[in-house]
Nucleic acid binder design. Structure first.
Lengths: 352, 352
DNA sequence: GTGAAAGCGCTAACAC
DNA sequence: GTGTTAGCGCTTTCAC
C-alpha cells in the first residue's frame, strides 16, 4: 500500500499498481483483461490507482504475452486514391468496432515496396493482413510476389481485394462482371449502341473482366464491336481519359455513350467532350466506376457504379479476423455493385 | 548445429537460430541489430539459417526490450479528405525513409473518438504522435482535449498541424497568413476589388487567420469590406460552397473574384457560378486553398494555394522523431504556401 | 568477439 | 478468487 516514488521517466506498470494496491500483479492483470472474476473491492482499489497514475497498459507487452496483437495490417497502393481511401476507412471503422487496430502501409505501386511491406507485417506480428489492389489486381499473378505472399501466409492469413493465384489468400472481390453487365444493360435500354469503353490496362483482373463482359453483352444484343471504341490506354488517370477521348472525338465514328474505367478517367473524358462542343448527356452519355465523391462534384454529375464501401470494409475485416482465429470463412466472396444514376447519362440521341 | 524439428505452428526465434548455428542467442541478436561486431564467419552461418527458415524477428519483442517501437502514430480526422491523404502519405514516406512505421487512425471528426485515439497511441507505445487537424485546428483549444493531450505528452512527444494551447505540443503549421496575403495581393494586382471569401468556420484557427488577413489586406488597399462577401458558412464542403455561392449570386452585389476556403468549396462555387450563367474567369475569378488533385480536374482548372506536401510530411516526421529522441527541435515551424495559377483566375472584368 | 543472465511489461496456467 | 511461476522473443550490460 505504499505510495509510488515518482520516478518521472519510467512509465508505470502493473507491478507498481499491484504493490500499491497490496495485491499480486496477476490480479491487476485480471482486471485488465476482464475475463476472470476479481473481488469487486480489490478491483475498485486497483482501478482507482490506475486512474491516479493514468496507467496505460503496454500493448506491446500484452501482444507479446498472448501472441496476438489485435492489429490488422492493410497494404494498399496509394490511399490518396479516393477509391482506396474509402475502403480503408471502412476497414478501420469495422476493425475498431471489433477491437482491432489497423496498420496502414502504402506501396506507391512499386512491387518491391509491396513485398517489403509483407515482410514488415510479419515482423509486426499483425493478426492478419488485408491487401487492397497492387499485385492482387493482376490478371496473372506475379510469381515472385506469390512466393513472398506464401511465406507470409504460413504465419498469418492474407485477404486480398483481387486474387493471388497459387496462394491461399482469401478473396473479397468486387463483382466486375456484374458491374459491367448492369452498366451495359442500362445503356442499351436507353437505346445506346455506339458505346465506347475507355481506360484501364488489360493485365488488370477487373479491367479484363469488364472488357470481356462488355464484348459479351454487345454480342448478346447483336451489336458489332467497334475497334476504335475500345481504348484501354493502360492508365486510370484523368490525363489518360482526356487524351483517349480527344483521340476518339477526332475520328469520324463518334459514340453516343462512353464507359470510363473509373471516376478519374471520367473526369478527363468529360473535359474532352465539353471542349469538343458536345453536350452531356444529350449528345454523349458518360458512365463510370467507383462512385467516389468526384462523381458528385463534376458538371454534369456523374453516373457511376457504387460498391457499398461500408459493407466491403466490414467483409474484408471480418474475413481477416475470422481467418486469424482459424474459424471457417469462405475462400472467395463478392461485393455487389449498384449503379447510381446522375446527370451524365441519358437516352441515346435520335440517330440521324 | 542440429536441424530444427519443424514444429509447424510456433514461429522460429533467435533461440532456434542460435542452437542450430551453435552460438548463443545474443550473437544472433547482434547480427540482427548490427550495432556490434560479430565474427564474419558466424554471421554468415547465422544469416544462412535465418534465410533457410525465413526468420522474421518479432518487432513486438524488440520494441518491448529496447522500449522503442520505431512507430509514429498519426491521428487525423478523415484520410478520405485528399488534403489529409496527401500529408499522411508524405509522412509515411518520410517515416519509412527514417526506418519508422506509421500507425494511422481516423477520428471521423468526433472529439471523443479523438481522445480515445490518444490513449490508444499511448498503449501502443508509439515513439511520437502526429495529429493532423481535428482538435488541433481549433481557434480555442478544447480544455478536456488539452487535458488528455497533456497526459499523453508526459509519455511521448505530440506534434500537431495546428496548435493546442496549454500543452507542450510541437507545432508545424501552414502559414495561413501568408497563404491569404499572397492570394489577396495576386487578385488585387489583377484589379479585383470585389472579392468574396466563402466557406469555413471562424472557430477554426487557419480560417480565422485567413479572415483577419483578408480584412487587413483590404484595409491596406483601402477597399471597404462588404458584409455579403464574407460567407463563413461553417463548412468546408462542396454543398456548402454551392449553397453560399447561390445565395451570393442571387443578390445584387456580384463579386469579381471569390476565394474558396478549400478545393471542395471551390468545386461547389464553380458549379453555382456556371449555373448562373457567369463565365470563369472572365466574369468571376475563383481561387482556392490546398491544391488537391481536384484543382486539376475542374473545368476550368482551379487556381489554388499549394503547400509543398512532401516537405510538410518530412518536417512533421522529423520533428516527431527528433523530439522522441529528446533532441532539440523548434517548438513551432511554418510551411510556406505557394499559389499555383491555373485557368480559374484572371484580370477583373472592365467595370461598367 | 562472445556467452550468461537479467529484464522489458504483460498473460496464463497452476496450485492453493 | 488470488498469488506464484513461467514464459512471450528480443536486447543489453557485464564478465571473460
Amino acid at each position: 500500500m505504499e505510495e509510488r516514488k515518482q520516478k518521472e521517466d519510467k512509465p508505470i506498470t502493473i507491478y507498481d499498481i499491484a504493490k500499491e494496491a497490496g495485491v499480486s500483479p496477476s490480479t491487476v492483470s485480471r482486471v485488465l483483461t476482464n475475463k476472470v472474476k476479481v473481488n469487486p473491492k480489490k478491483r475498485d482499489i486497483i482501478c482507482k490507482i490506475m486512474e491516479k497514475y493514468d496507467f496505460k497498459p503496454n500493448a506491446l507487452a500484452r501482444s507479446l504475452a498472448d501472441t496476438k496483437s489485435n492489429t490488422i495490417g492493410i497494404i494498399t497502393a496509394d490511399v490518396r486514391n479516393p477509391f482506396y481511401a474509402q475502403i480503408f476507412v471502412a476497414c478501420e471503422v469495422a476493425a475498431r468496432r471489433a477491437g482491432y487496430i489497423v496498420l496502414l502501409c502504402n506501396s506507391m505501386g512499386e512491387t518491391d515496396q509491396e513485398k517489403q511491406l509483407l515482410t514488415q507485417m510479419q515482423e509486426q506480428r499483425v493478426d492478419a493482413v488485408i491487401q487492397l489492389g497492387g499485385r492482387a489486381d493482376d490478371l496473372e499473378s506475379n510469381p515472385s510476389y506469390v512466393e513472398q505472399a506464401n511465406r507470409l501466409i504460413k504465419t498469418m492469413p492474407l485477404v486480398v481485394s483481387g486474387k493471388l493465384d497459387g496462394t491461399d489468400a482469401y478473396q473479397v472481390q468486387i463483382d466486375a462482371v456484374k458491374a459491367m453487365e448492369s452498366i451495359m444493360e442500362y445503356l442499351i435500354r436507353l437505346k445506346h449502341t455506339k458505346i465506347a469503353m475507355i481506360g484501364g490496362r488489360m493485365d488488370v483482373l477487373s479491367t479484363y473482366e469488364k472488357r470481356q463482359t462488355y464484348l459479351k453483352v454487345l454480342e448478346r444484343h447483336q451489336i458489332k464491336p467497334v475497334e476504335a471504341f475500345m481504348r484501354d490506354n493502360g492508365e486510370y488517370s484523368y490525363e489518360a481519359g482526356y487524351r483517349s477521348m480527344n483521340e476518339l472525338l477526332s475520328g469520324t465514328n463518334i459514340p453516343t455513350a462512353v464507359i470510363a474505367i473509373n471516376d478519374f478517367s471520367a473526369t478527363g473524358i468529360i473535359r474532352s467532350i465539353i471542349e469538343h462542343g458536345y453536350r452531356i448527356p444529350q449528345d454523349i452519355s458518360v458512365v463510370s466506376y467507383d462512385n467516389t465523391y468526384m462523381a458528385n462534384f463534376l458538371i454534369p454529375k456523374l453516373t457511376s457504379v457504387d460498391y457499398n464501401y461500408e459493407a466491403y470494409g466490414e467483409k474484408l475485416v471480418q474475413t481477416a479476423i475470422l481467418a486469424s482465429r482459424k474459424e471457417e470463412v469462405p475462400r472467395i466472396q463478392y461485393i455487389e455493385p449498384t449503379i447510381v444514376i446522375r446527370e451524365s447519362s441519358g437516352p441515346a440521341p435520335i440517330s440521324v
